[in-house]
Amino acid sequence: MIVHQLSVFLENKSGRLTEVLETLGKENIKITALSVADTSEFGILRMIVTDPEKAKNILKEKSFTVNLTDVLSIITPNEARFYAKALKILSDLDISIEYTYAFSIGEKSVIILRTNNTEMAIKALQEHEMELLKASDLYKI
């Protein structure tokens, strides 16, 4: 149930994000979800992509600093209370959220979570009957 998210270190220079996307596009890598965490000087680009291992190598060749990070993904009805429920399950167990991002399609929401204990988080969410997404399911969205 662990999803490998692709993280890229980006300097705050115009054109860098474009370069990443174009590079991946050329190699026919599809991006399911994307978010950017930024400071005034640099940003971290986080993406769920098809074939993260290949994407990592392609970007490495282009001299980007890249890493794969374990995250998890759940799918819920498109209502805030379900997002809240998931977060509460984790906080009740003292699992902290390092970051999260989400998007919705139609009646459903997809939530990506990075916690300090991925294994434990998955177990807890499953016990509370939250629906987890496999990497392969995510790419189909």
């Binding site: 993280s7 270190f9 965490a37 990070t69």
Partner: peptide
């Protein structure tokens, strides 16, 4: 590169 983690 070895040090890069995706946490700000």
């Amino acid at each position: 590169e070895q040090f890069f983690q995706d946490k700000i």
